[in-house]
């Protein structure tokens, strides 16, 4: 089904929108969540949470790239869950209370990190725009989706060495680009 039709169904508050979206992109979203969490049950829960999140956000939002939007939301939920699962601080009630405060009183370090993040994020996005499509796919597959070199090689029908070589060259170019942008 066409993405715009699925979005229309969201706007009509038809629950079939969830079914269609899940059928169309659910497995891709689950695969990427699983790359983050390495746990298929948790990954499935992340997809369900993401579908609920989309149900709550569309409308009013009308995403231009529905597939990417679902997968992005799923990945963010997976990252949060990973953070939650691995954070030792969570053992302490006091730390949880501090976490709540941290949201409204960010440290100077956090503010700097956010600025760096914003600049870096824009630079990486611009850098991706300079790459040929094949290289961009490999970069996004490895560093955004968390696919292994072997998985990418299998999906693109080429050897691991070729992917490893390409990633090495892309990283080198990225470093050069970031230096030029004075971010390194």
């Amino acid at each position: 089904m066409d993405n715009s039709k699925i979005i229309d169904m969201f706007f009509e508050r038809s629950e079939q929108a969830i079914v269609e979206l899940s059928q169309q992109y659910g497995n891709q979203a689950k695969a990427i969540a699983n790359n983050v969490l390495n746990n298929i049950d948790d990954a499935e829960e992340c997809v369900n949470d993401a579908l609920l999140s989309l149900w709550n956000s569309i409308p009013p939002m009308r995403p231009n790239h529905l597939q990417a939007y679902l997968i992005k939301v799923t990945k963010n939920i997976a990252l949060n869950r990973l953070d939650y699962n691995t954070s030792k601080k969570r053992n302490s009630h006091y730390d949880i209370a501090l976490d709540e405060l941290q949201d409204c009183i960010p440290s100077r370090e956090n503010i700097e990190s956010k600025i760096i993040e914003q600049e870096l994020s824009k630079a990486i996005d611009d850098f991706l725009g300079t790459l040929p499509k094949d290289d961009r796919v490999i970069f996004v597959g490895r560093y955004w989706m968390g696919e292994s070199v072997l998985e990418i090689a299998n999906k693109l029908h080429c050897s691991q060495n070729i992917i490893a070589v390409k990633l090495f060259r892309i990283r080198k170019r990225l470093k050069h680009y970031l230096k030029k942008e004075r971010l390194l």
Partner: peptide
């Protein structure tokens, strides 16, 4: 640079690049 800064920065790349990669890497896996 901290891993979480890199992770957050990478996470914000354009949707069109994500969709492009998904289309290439997840097209008809079977």
């Amino acid at each position: 640079m901290k891993k979480d800064v890199i992770s957050n920065s990478i996470n914000k790349i354009s949707d069109e690049y994500i969709e492009e990669a998904i289309d290439e890497l997840y097209k008809n896996p079977l």
